[in-house]
Amino acid sequence: MNGPTHGYWCECWTEEVTGTGGPARLASFDAYSAPQADRWVAIALRTISPALDSDASDEAWTWLHGKRAETRRALMRSEPCTVTITHADVRITWTIRPVLFLPLAHRQDAELPACARSFKPHRTD
């Protein structure tokens, strides 16, 4: 098994601005580089920008053309980042956090970890 891998955990959340509904996670993504992480947000913003109201579209393009470079530099320094736009009464937030991805044991490896032998499958009768 290989050791831990540095990467970024990315999520997209929505929340009603009125506060009547709690936040809901729409998507998550595991990125293995800062460019891959900020590209995930950029693709999402470019995809939804035609459907956004004019203020939200302006927020999206401001990040894409001005603040995206700041976001990438912060990620390269292992700092978490957030990109938020508000469309009508919905706040959409992308979060990017530096993480360590731990390797998983492959089922076909010759030597599984000792804990694998203690696993008992759940059976329903």
Results as ranks from 00 to 15, higher is better:
residue 1 M to F: 14
residue 1 M to Y: 15
residue 2 N to S: 14
residue 2 N to T: 15
residue 3 G to Y: 03
residue 4 P to N: 11
residue 5 T to L: 15
residue 5 T to Q: 13
residue 7 G to I: 02
residue 7 G to P: 02
residue 8 Y to E: 00
residue 8 Y to V: 04
residue 8 Y to T: 03
residue 10 C to E: 05
residue 13 W to Q: 00
residue 13 W to P: 01
residue 14 T to I: 06
residue 15 E to C: 04
residue 15 E to T: 08
residue 16 E to R: 15
residue 17 V to A: 03
residue 17 V to H: 06
residue 17 V to E: 07
residue 20 T to Y: 15
residue 21 G to Y: 07
residue 23 P to A: 05
residue 23 P to M: 04
residue 24 A to G: 14
residue 24 A to C: 15
residue 24 A to R: 14
residue 25 R to P: 02
residue 26 L to H: 08
residue 26 L to K: 07
residue 27 A to S: 08
residue 28 S to M: 10
residue 28 S to C: 13
residue 30 D to R: 01
residue 30 D to V: 03
residue 31 A to M: 05
residue 32 Y to C: 06
residue 32 Y to W: 13
residue 32 Y to S: 05
residue 33 S to Q: 01
residue 33 S to F: 01
residue 34 A to N: 00
residue 34 A to M: 03
residue 37 A to F: 04
residue 38 D to E: 09
residue 39 R to Y: 10
residue 39 R to F: 08
residue 41 V to E: 07
residue 41 V to Q: 05
residue 44 A to Q: 11
residue 46 R to N: 15
residue 46 R to F: 11
residue 48 I to W: 14
residue 48 I to S: 10
residue 48 I to A: 11
residue 49 S to F: 09
residue 49 S to Q: 05
residue 50 P to H: 06
residue 55 D to R: 14
residue 56 A to D: 04
residue 57 S to Q: 12
residue 58 D to L: 13
residue 60 A to H: 02
residue 62 T to V: 13
residue 63 W to M: 02
residue 63 W to I: 01
residue 64 L to Y: 00
residue 64 L to H: 03
residue 64 L to S: 04
residue 64 L to A: 01
residue 65 H to T: 10
residue 65 H to E: 04
residue 66 G to A: 08
residue 66 G to Y: 08
residue 71 T to K: 08
residue 72 R to V: 11
residue 72 R to F: 12
residue 72 R to I: 10
residue 72 R to N: 12
residue 78 S to W: 06
residue 78 S to R: 08
residue 79 E to Y: 06
residue 80 P to K: 06
residue 80 P to H: 06
residue 81 C to K: 08
residue 81 C to V: 00
residue 82 T to H: 13
residue 84 T to P: 06
residue 84 T to C: 11
residue 85 I to K: 01
residue 85 I to R: 03
residue 85 I to G: 00
residue 86 T to Q: 04
residue 87 H to W: 04
residue 87 H to L: 03
residue 87 H to E: 08
residue 90 V to P: 07
residue 90 V to E: 09
residue 92 I to S: 05
residue 94 W to N: 04
residue 95 T to A: 02
residue 96 I to M: 04
residue 96 I to Q: 05
residue 97 R to G: 13
residue 97 R to E: 15
residue 98 P to N: 03
residue 98 P to G: 04
residue 100 L to E: 09
residue 101 F to G: 06
residue 101 F to P: 00
residue 103 P to K: 06
residue 103 P to H: 05
residue 104 L to D: 11
residue 105 A to W: 07
residue 105 A to T: 06
residue 106 H to P: 10
residue 107 R to C: 13
residue 108 Q to V: 12
residue 108 Q to K: 09
residue 109 D to V: 03
residue 109 D to P: 07
residue 109 D to E: 05
residue 110 A to I: 02
residue 110 A to E: 07
residue 111 E to D: 11
residue 111 E to G: 13
residue 111 E to A: 12
residue 112 L to G: 02
residue 112 L to V: 01
residue 113 P to S: 02
residue 115 C to G: 15
residue 116 A to F: 02
residue 117 R to Y: 08
residue 118 S to H: 12
residue 119 F to A: 07
residue 119 F to D: 08
residue 120 K to G: 13
residue 120 K to T: 14
residue 122 H to C: 14
residue 123 R to Y: 14
residue 123 R to V: 12
